[in-house]
């Protein structure tokens, strides 16, 4: 009889071990709440791909080859305790790809328009890029102007004040950044996301629309989180 008991005890131990190893069932399958679609545009060689690389890999990519058509990068960020997955489409700046890249504006929630502070011509082309963006995207698309290569102060050709004025006139958000040092790169991507999130909270973006550039992925206890979202919205509005 004592033998049976010892067998049973051994089994207990084993079963407890199994139960411990059993994965947690309640974890939500998605590790993010939203997907935001971004597009990066601007003249050839202004550092669009380097900005993306700096943002997704936190590294500077020297000798970056020219982008062929469009490339794609993702990163999960956090805004207001919400996990947001950024799906970023990096377009080629070369004129020969223009026909292809134009098709990617469709349904972008954010557009990062990049120029090179050391090359005035790239700044001069901004208005044509802006026209394209306005024609090809939603009115709610957040457009963020980035003056890249801010580390090359000595060869600067476009002043901060001038670009800032241009951005203000056209209602764009604006920062000077450096893909090389990483300065302001995070900020540009995150500020855009914050602005998009704010638009969602204020109801300017219809999440149910198929091509709003934003997809919602409710985490598992969706009913309870809804109320907290509503309060979060109020907080957002005040700022």
């Amino acid at each position: 009889m004592s033998k049976v008991r010892s067998v049973v005890n051994k089994l207990h131990e084993r079963i407890d071990y199994f139960i411990e190893k059993c994965p947690n069932m309640t974890a939500a399958p998605y590790n993010y709440n939203y997907i935001f679609k971004y597009i990066i545009i601007g003249d050839m060689g202004v550092g669009k791909s380097c900005l993306l690389h700096q943002f997704t890999e936190k590294k500077f990519m020297a000798n970056c080859p020219h982008t062929i058509g469009v490339e794609f990068g993702t990163r999960i960020i956090e805004v207001d305790d919400k996990k947001i997955k950024l799906q970023i489409w990096d377009t080629a700046g070369q004129e020969r790809f223009r026909a292809v890249t134009r098709s990617y504006y469709r349904g972008a929630a954010g557009a990062l328009m990049v120029y090179d502070i050391t090359r005035r011509s790239t700044y001069n082309h901004l208005s044509s890029w802006l026209t394209d963006t306005r024609n090809l995207t939603n009115p709610s698309t957040v457009i963020f102007l980035i003056g890249n290569k801010s580390d090359l102060e000595s060869t600067r050709e476009v002043t901060y004040e001038e670009a800032k004025e241009f951005a203000d006139e056209n209602g764009l958000m604006f920062l000077e950044a450096s893909a090389m040092t990483g300065q302001n790169v995070e900020e540009a991507f995150l500020e855009t996301a914050r602005k998009i999130y704010q638009n969602i909270q204020e109801g300017r973006l219809d999440l149910n629309a198929s091509e709003s550039g934003v997809q919602h992925r409710p985490s598992q206890p969706s009913r309870t989180s809804l109320s907290s979202e509503a309060t979060g919205a109020k907080d957002q509005c005040s700022c």
Binding site: K37, V70, A99, S103, Y104, R106
Partner: peptide, 18 residues
């Protein structure tokens, strides 16, 4: 035609990662 076909392919290209 260029725009039309380009748009169709871009849409597909962007739907597939999802």
């Amino acid at each position: 035609p260029k725009r039309y076909i380009g748009d169709m392919f871009a849409w597909l290209h962007q739907s597939i990662p999802t």
